[in-house]
Amino acid sequence: MLAESLFFSAVLFSIGVIGVLTRRNAIIVFMCVELMLNAVNLTFVAFARVYGAGGQVFVFLVMTVAAAEAAVGLAIIIALFRHRHTVDLQNINLLKG
């Protein structure tokens, strides 16, 4: 089942990348990042079955970091919305050269 898991993980990760690149809604872009983290977790779990349970510890740590990232990222989105009254990434271009 290792090859199948890696296949599913690859497809899910690519869907996440495509979502990050094509969507303009900041919240949906953020959810696509979560999807990519989930795809990587599937890879870790699949390899943990072959190489030992250390991979599951990594999934545990990735989930913790994802929770922290979601909290901070969503706070940034709220702060951004207060200033610009939009979450459309097309209109948030302060750093554009």
């Binding site: 296949f7 993980s9 990760f13 690519s14 990348v17 690149l21 094509t22 969507r23 459309d88 097309q90």
Partner: peptide, 25 residues
């Protein structure tokens, strides 16, 4: 919400997605 970026972003996303899928396969 006017969503989804323009054509070039979609093409870039498609290329990156195909590249990633090929690499991971």
């Amino acid at each position: 919400l006017a969503d989804a970026r323009g054509l070039w972003w979609k093409l870039a996303a498609g290329a990156v997605g195909l590249g990633l899928v090929a690499e991971l396969f």
